[in-house]
Computed example of a mutant assay.
Amino acid sequence: MIVTFDAELWLWEARRNESWTFVSLPAEASEDIREITAGLERGFGSLRVRARIGVSTWKTSIFPDSKRGSYVLPIKRAIRTAQSLEPGDTTSVEVELIDL
């Protein structure tokens, strides 16, 4: 399953000083992912993905966020730097579930 969407980068409130930056997957796509992956989650409900922003591709995990009602994707500093992104910027994101 591949999900492509535009999203705004945001900082996780509990770790603002450590610059944990995320994007939220769309609610509808998150619901589809929950249905497809029921029982396949790893620690903290995480799911392994391959992500792409611009020319940067990396493997990571998405995590359920009960506050937002969707999965969230961490955007590591190296990716933000390579793509010249800061919290508050909107970017196109591609997420592919792996290990299905």
Rank of each mutant, 00 (worst) to 15 (best):
R48T: 05
E31F: 05
D32P: 02
I53K: 03
G69I: 06
T90F: 09
S92K: 08
R48N: 11
V55C: 12
D65R: 01
V55M: 08
A29S: 11
S56E: 11
S84Y: 02
R52E: 15
I98K: 01
D65P: 02
A38G: 08
S70V: 04
R68T: 03
S84L: 14
A51Y: 02
R15G: 06
L100R: 10
D99A: 11
T21K: 05
R50W: 03
V93P: 00
S46W: 14
L9C: 03
V95D: 00
E18I: 07
R34F: 12
G43F: 15
T37Q: 13
T60G: 08
E28M: 11
G69L: 11
E28Q: 12
R52M: 12
Q83I: 06
E8V: 12
E8W: 06
E41P: 07
E8M: 13
R50V: 12
R50D: 08
F44H: 11
Q83R: 13
D99F: 03
S24P: 07
E86Y: 07
R52W: 03
V95N: 04
V23I: 06
A38P: 01
T81C: 07
I33E: 04
L85I: 06
V3A: 05
P64V: 11
P26E: 04
F5Y: 07
A27I: 15
S92W: 07
L9D: 02
W12A: 10
I62G: 02
I36E: 13
L85F: 06
I79K: 05
G43I: 15
N17C: 13
E13N: 13
G39W: 08
P74Y: 05
I36Y: 10
E28C: 05
E94R: 10
P26S: 05
G43A: 15
R15W: 15
F63P: 04
S56D: 14
V55T: 14
K59E: 15
S30D: 00
I75M: 08
K59Q: 12
L40S: 04
S61Y: 11
E41I: 10
T4Y: 03
E35V: 10
T91A: 13
V3Y: 03
I2D: 10
D6L: 13
S92Q: 07
R68I: 11
E31H: 08
S61F: 09
A78D: 10
K67N: 11
Q83K: 12
I36W: 03
